[in-house]
Computed example of a mutant assay.
Amino acid sequence: MKIAIVGCGGMGNVHALSYVNMPDVELTGVCDLDIELAQALSLTTGAPAFTSFETMLNDADFDVVSVTLPSYLHKEYTLKAAQAGKHVICEKPLALNLEDAAAMIQGCEQYGVHLFVGHVVRFFPEYVQMKQAIDEGKLGRVGVIHAKRIGSHPGDVRPWFKDFEKSGGVITDLMIHDIDFLRWAVGEVKSVYGLNQRVNDIDYALVTLLFENGAVANVEAFWGYQGPFQTAVEIAGSKGIIRSDSQKSSSLHICKAPSDSEGRRFAEVPQSPGYASPYDLEIAHFIQCIRDGSEPIVTANDAYKALEITMAALESVRTGKSVQLKTSSTLEEETV
């Protein structure tokens, strides 16, 4: 299968390195308005460099395009690719508002191409294990979740991140990872309350999600942290607690509540999943879905629903009030 990339920044390089190491896949073009970025990725991969997407459409032979551009350009280039009959692998967030996201999904359906969205957290082994623990009933009824994702401000390297109209800020760009994971693992969200402070190089958010099943999650995201990038999740249920902390030597710990016969103490059982690049797993999965027509682990509608929760959080930040979400529905139902 032949692939092209539009957007040769950080995520463009991540996608490119996955493709060049993938069997039966050929990278046939890389494109960026910044000729230096395009040429640098061309040297790394051997794929021809372009500064015009239209020229790449005309001159390069490919079946799939990775859209790894800044978020505010996702809609424009996804629809251009769809019109040209190319399948699309788009980085998250799908778009910066629900209208654009719906147009992207409907446009790809109209032109008969697949649309995949890079919610890569679903491919991190420790997050997969947390969902499995919930699905298998190991935690009992899920009650309270705490999640955080913090790091330096990406706008220090890519200034567009500091423009809220182009990035959507820390909630839309960073917290959406945990929003999508928690919806996948815990269930649909009923209401959202958000706080967000943006001052200079600081963008901090704390969002509370109330799920339809009664679970509550406090989700934290922070751009401007002076230490290393880190993530943590703790999920407490009626039968036990599961936690993951990227700063711990073992990435996943399950604390089981002992039976009375064991005495009232907690036994902590670490689980250390083997490492494989989640991006490699994600992109290989999307390519396989194109080949055999199978349903992806994360659908375009999943990406739409994660964005819907994100937009509710931003509305709550603006109004200072909790925002109620519609009951579970698909994009098709919402647009009828």
Rank of each mutant, 00 (worst) to 15 (best):
L206W: 09
K166S: 08
I150K: 13
E126V: 09
I176V: 12
I134G: 00
G214F: 01
D163F: 11
G155N: 07
G137H: 01
P159Y: 10
D135W: 04
R183G: 04
D201I: 11
D163L: 15
M104W: 07
Y204W: 12
D178K: 15
E212I: 07
I171A: 02
W160G: 05
A103D: 13
F222P: 01
G194W: 05
G168P: 09
G169C: 07
L195E: 12
A147Q: 01
A147M: 04
V170S: 05
I105P: 02
E136W: 01
K131Q: 02
K166D: 06
G137W: 01
S152V: 07
A133T: 04
R141I: 05
K131E: 00
K190M: 10
H146N: 05
V120C: 14
I202W: 13
G214E: 03
S191Q: 11
I176W: 05
E165W: 04
I134T: 00
G168D: 06
D173C: 15
Y127P: 00
E126F: 02
N213D: 11
S152D: 13
L182V: 02
D135S: 10
D156G: 15
V219L: 10
W223Q: 10
V207W: 02
V186G: 04
V113K: 13
V113Q: 08
A221R: 01
R158M: 14
G194Y: 05
Q110E: 14
M130Y: 00
E220R: 07
D203V: 07
K166T: 02
T172M: 14
G140V: 01
C108Y: 09
R183L: 12
H153C: 10
H114R: 15
T172R: 10
F124H: 07
C108L: 11
E109F: 07
I105Q: 08
P159E: 11
R141K: 14
D156N: 15
G224E: 04
G143L: 13
F164Y: 14
G151M: 11
Y193I: 05
L195W: 07
C108Q: 09
V192I: 06
L210S: 10
F211M: 08
V144S: 06
G224F: 04
V120R: 13
G143W: 02
V199I: 15
L174K: 14
D173E: 15
L210E: 14
N218G: 08
Q110I: 06
S152P: 08
V216R: 11
H146P: 00
E109N: 14
